[in-house]
């Protein structure tokens, strides 16, 4: 590796590129979601601004930018300002450990297609997203209003409950891989079975599919997406924790939600679907980025589809599902995975 300033400069450029890419993805995900949900509901959706309505996000951005910057009476000044920033910053930070291409692509010895590769790897995402929760809680509390507070309380209870199931599920994937670091987890999945079937974790029967299902349910709940979008269920809570926010501060919460969705999709792809792995990546490493984006996009589409299809669950159903089904199944899955790894150590990284 080059001297410290080179590493720092490359990292800064990488971060900038990723942030811009995520912001663009956010803008067009709002458009895609509105268009797709309209299609699912036999409506047309925004199609007036530009061809196919493609400039709609720009128009929305300009509108939000010129909105009045207000503060509800009795709000807690400092926390009301900090909350959206906290939510947005942590959403971007979590993406830092996701590898979006093969580690061979280097510049002065610094891998270009991942921002950071800490030893704790996947745990970093859990840590950062747990800080992001404060954005929601503080936003709800500092607005000095009933609905946001209820939304914030629901959100934090939901996220704490489902983090347990997701965490336990992650442990079984970590056992299969024998490492916490995401590039190594992907690297192991680039191998093949019988010479043709990719060794993605989803194909490790029976634990892979179960772990994936549990992770998918948990991730949907943790990103507050339908059918688990109780923290912002509009019929009961107006908009949930960001009811009292407007303009760019509301936009910050919105960005955080969509970026979290992208990160959740990226984690699912990385852990279960071989990350950037795909045909011809060993010849053209940069192709990995395209595979990665395609897989993430498939997940984003799936989450939108889910929202258009399923009705919202009730709060007690949500808690029952989390504690009485997800956690026991995750523990069962963990036990089976441990047994398998013990019997066939070649499956685990060890």
């Amino acid at each position: 590796m080059g001297p410290l300033w080179v590493v720092l400069a490359i990292t800064a450029v990488k971060s900038l590129v990723v942030i811009v890419a995520l912001l663009t993805a956010f803008a067009y995900m709002t458009w895609l979601e509105r268009r797709l949900v309209s299609r699912f509901q036999v409506r047309i959706g925004p199609n007036r601004v530009g061809p196919f309505g493609l400039l709609q996000p720009v128009a929305d951005g300009i509108k939000l930018f010129f909105k009045e910057d207000f503060m509800p009476s009795g709000a807690d000044r400092a926390l009301y300002f900090i909350a959206p920033g906290l939510a947005m910053v942590t959403a971007f930070t979590a993406f830092a450990v996701i590898p979006f291409g093969p580690p061979e692509v280097k510049l002065w010895g610094v891998p270009l297609l991942q921002i950071a590769n800490p030893n704790a790897g996947i745990l970093f995402i859990l840590a950062v997203s747990s800080i992001g929760l404060y954005g929601i809680i503080l936003g709800g509390w500092s607005s000095n209003s009933k609905y946001p507070l209820l939304g914030a309380l629901r959100s934090s209870a939901q996220m704490i409950s489902y983090e347990l199931g997701v965490g336990l599920t992650l442990v079984s994937v970590i056992l299969l891989s024998g490492t916490l670091q995401l590039p190594q987890i992907v690297e192991q999945q680039t191998l093949t079975w019988f010479g043709f079937l990719p060794r993605w974790n989803i194909f490790v029967i029976p634990v892979g599919p179960l772990a994936f299902l549990l992770f998918l349910i948990g991730a949907t709940a943790e990103t507050n997406r339908a059918p688990f979008d109780l923290p912002e269920s509009e019929q009961e809570l107006t908009a949930g924790y960001h009811t009292e926010y407007g303009g760019m501060k509301f936009a910050a919460f919105f960005v955080a939600e969509y970026v979290n969705l992208v990160t959740a999709s990226a984690v699912a792809v990385t852990l279960f679907f071989g990350g950037w792995d795909g045909p011809f990546v060993d010849q053209v490493p940069l192709l990995g980025v395209l595979w990665f984006i395609a897989k993430v996009f498939a997940f984003v589409f799936f989450f939108i589809w889910l929202r258009a299809t399923l009705p919202r669950v009730r709060y007690d159903q949500l808690m029952d599902l989390g504690w009485k089904l997800l956690v026991p199944l995750a523990i069962l899955n963990l036990a089976i995975t441990s047994a398998i790894v013990l019997i066939w150590p070649s499956l685990g990284g060890g």
């Binding site: 859990l126 950062v128 747990s130 929760l133």
Partner: peptide, 8 residues
């Protein structure tokens, strides 16, 4: 430290 103390 973050996951357990701050997160839970």
């Amino acid at each position: 430290q973050i996951v357990i103390y701050a997160g839970a």
